[in-house]
Amino acid sequence: METFKVMEIKKSVYEGNDRRAEVLRAELKEGKVFLLNLMSSPGSGKTTTVLRTIEALRDEMRIGVLEADIDSDVDAKTVSDAGTRVIQMHSGGMCHLTADMTRQGLECLGTDGLDFVILENIGNLICTAEADTGASRNAMILSVPEGDDKPLKYPMMFAMVDVLLINKIDAISFFDFDFEAVRERVTRLNPGIRIIPISAKTGEGVAEWAEWIRTEVREWKRA
């Protein structure tokens, strides 16, 4: 006769990853590498924003890029010509990055001598929000053509990021995009969030975005 024994585990599935993310975050802090996790739907402008960010900050920070976006068109050469280290991560059809995958990416990139690494996450608003990568800060891009009701559809993502970039504002006259409605919806989900309208195409708002990064890096160093 076999005896069955019920053993309670009561553990959130995300806990293991959360723990590994905390460890990575602490190690990055120790090594003085600021990791920014950049998330959005496909096509919102992550890659274009990464290029703009490099342009704005390359004279004051040594920057690296982890490219995990599947349909990315970052020209590795253009980026590296600008003195930026970049690697394309092969996420093998995965829809989000875990802390372990981020760690592997960083090891492959080599963080020696870098101050600032941008992780262009896989284009997805659902599970990227559930998996902590270990980043120092989390950023999200919502582009104008996607519509102002996105915060209602993907509340988790809007609730967990430190900053929201509203991109493609150069195209605002072609769309029915209510800025105030977005601001109101997003701050209700996340009262401490910073919202910055930008156009990665024209460069509008990029200075404000770069200033946000500088401030956060300073605060992160002090903390």
Binding site: E2, T3, F4, K5, M7, E8, I9, K10, K11, S12
Partner: peptide, 12 residues
């Protein structure tokens, strides 16, 4: 409603 938990195992 956002949970995803490992509740328990039944061992034998």
């Amino acid at each position: 409603g956002r949970e995803f938990m490992i509740k328990e195992i039944v061992a034998c």
